[in-house]
Design a protein around this nucleic acid. Structure first.
Lengths: 215, 215
DNA sequence: CTGAATATCACGGTTTTCAGTGAAAACAAA
DNA sequence: TTTGTTTTCACTGAAAACCGTGATATTCAG
């Protein structure tokens, strides 16, 4: 038998970390080098032990400090030889899209079966990418719905103004805060209303809240 | 050694299920009888195999069909001898409160360490309850904040009107819809604004969205 | 370089919201 | 039965939002 593959696992839920470790313990062809709770820990390790070859990083999406999407991007940027497999409990079409564009090597859901997990890992270690059928489907749907809903994009200023509007500031107050004319803010208001297809302040606020602009 | 304890694990993420199974496989004193992906599966099993003694059910909170909170309630109702340990990735004070009131025997976070998990399981199997220090803290904080924030209660009509306001209807439209005078709706508007401590429509809308009134 | 998008500003008119004040009827609870 | 809450309605005046219809300057990608 050849030397085992070296992998790193990142997830902030240590119970999941322990679980994955247990599952992979039976696989003699795989050696877990590190388990980390944040993306930054992984990057630090890779930088320090750059001479050591790491074959694969398995990462969750939701993590504090540096999440899975950022971690994947950072790895592909600094250590392009290292493969990545993203494991997540959510099937967020947008994140998946970003990940595929950032050349992640695989994406599976946390409610995938053990066998699928192993299949994904092995595929990736053998040089192929692995996206589960379910994920492919979500991606396809996202493509379609994106074309039907041509994705409203707001400029920086628009975003800024919308945020303040949703935070209960009046037009005059926003104008003062941003050192702009009251008329300017009024224009933004109107544009936002027609752009977002809403009727009034309530619609603007709902949009802002739902897009997480106020966090 | 005496006969091992019989336990059931419920979680919709099979990866977590596999992980937990792996972790507990080393424990000779514990025997996993069933792993389920929904609460209903667990209840069905308990009903059918009622002669078989089950010592503990470990359950996630977020599950389709019947979630962890409901499952716990159902178990305590129908099979009071069966202990329950709730494992969740969120530390939602309200859910924890409900669970303690429904006599769950333990609650730990998914980012608890393996050792803590085992400690919790053993405590419960020995007849004690186990709530992790972190959880106790969250509970305490919830108690305090509940008393400091005296919980704004809205009447049926107020809720109804607030909902329509947040859905972008104007005062006149709401009045027509509910067969009330425009003045009446205006009154509600004002009361809601002062009651909820907000400044305008944006504040009302944020409140409605955040309380999930529009789902 | 050039057109498209963005950012900025302006005005008049209409509608809606907001603030203050008040009150009557229905209803439930103490 | 009295007290408190909820539901309902009314008026005024000021402030803000909304609508239409512009203009100019900058920036940025093709």
């Amino acid at each position: 038998m050849s030397t085992p593959y070296s992998i790193i696992i990142a997830d902030d839920h240590s119970m999941f970390l322990d679980g994955l470790t247990s599952i992979l313990a039976n696989e003699t062809s795989i050696k877990i080098i590190l388990t980390a709770k944040t993306g930054t820990q992984v990057i630090k390790y890779l930088r320090i032990n750059s001479e050591e070859k790491i074959d694969l990083v398995i990462t969750d999406i939701n993590m504090p400090e540096m999440d899975g999407v950022e971690l994947n991007a950072a790895i592909k940027e600094e250590f392009p030889k290292v493969k990545t497999l993203v494991v997540s409990m959510l099937e967020d079409a947008k994140k998946i899209k970003v990940l595929t564009e950032a050349n992640a090597n695989g994406y599976i859901s946390k409610n995938a079966e053990k066998t699928e997990l192993l299949k994904a890992i092995k595929s990736i270690l053998h040089g192929e990418n692995y996206f589960s059928p379910r994920i492919k489907q979500v991606l396809m749907e996202a493509m379609f719905s994106d074309k039907l809903e041509p994705e409203i994009s707001l400029s920086k200023r628009e975003t800024e103004v919308l945020k303040l509007i949703a935070l209960e500031f009046t037009t005059q107050e926003i104008a003062d805060q941003l050192f702009l004319s009251k008329h300017t803010i009024e224009s933004y208001r109107k544009n936002l209303i027609s752009k977002l297809g809403v009727r009034n302040l309530a619609g603007l606020t709902r949009y802002a809240v739902e897009k997480g602009m106020l966090d």
